[in-house]
Design a protein around this nucleic acid. Structure first.
Lengths: 95, 95
DNA sequence: GACCGATATGGCTATTTGGTAAAATAGGAA
DNA sequence: TTCCTATTTTACCAAATAGCCATATCGGTC
């Protein structure tokens, strides 16, 4: 059985990205920095749900956050995420 | 609630990639075409498990297959998958 | 101090996923 | 046809995930 932690670690990051709402969040954060309530408004889900999605992305190291008073602003840490988008679009085309 | 099927479709493809064994398979298939039993030997898991992983990748349009006698050979359809790898490695570095 | 707005966390249920073993399928050889 | 080998599918169980509600937490204001 392969037990290379390289693939385990990659899978953690990929899993964090592999959710429609989180892909949408990443797309938004690529253009701008947003606070949780702004994202919540765009998404239309429960605040706790949005907060949880953001925490998944943060733990994976995909987004970062800074606190301003009682608001928390999130931003994309690695713009290369767009390359992933491009690849997925490429695969979609071939289907 | 956002209901853009664009993100749903992307998530399906990402989810298909987001598993250590499947990342390993993709990595192998990027170098070569392999049949199921060869991959099974490399991975060391149950044959049915490997077959299931391959079927997940195939349904997502990531790999293709051709049958030669009673063997099925799989190959990567879209080499851009490597870009995804690069991005994940990039994110790992910042962690 | 108490209160309020913004976020995060814990608990619960429903759904999905991953793995194995057993049965089914498909093609070639005896 | 029967046997054999490679692969897929089915059935089942354990574990992980997503969503919502209720409950913290944390800063600033009154």
């Amino acid at each position: 059985m392969i037990s290379d932690s390289k693939y385990e670690q990659m899978a953690i990051i990929m899993k964090a990205m592999a959710h429609p709402t989180r892909l949408y969040i990443m797309d938004q954060l690529n253009e701008n920095e947003y606070c949780v309530c702004e994202l919540q408004e765009k998404i239309g889900a429960d605040m706790s749900t949005v907060s949880k999605h953001l925490s998944v992305l943060k733990h994976a190291g995909i987004v970062g956050s800074r606190k301003v008073n009682n608001q928390v602003f999130y931003k994309l840490l690695c713009p290369c995420v767009l390359d992933v988008y491009k690849c997925v679009v490429e695969i979609k085309k071939t289907n």
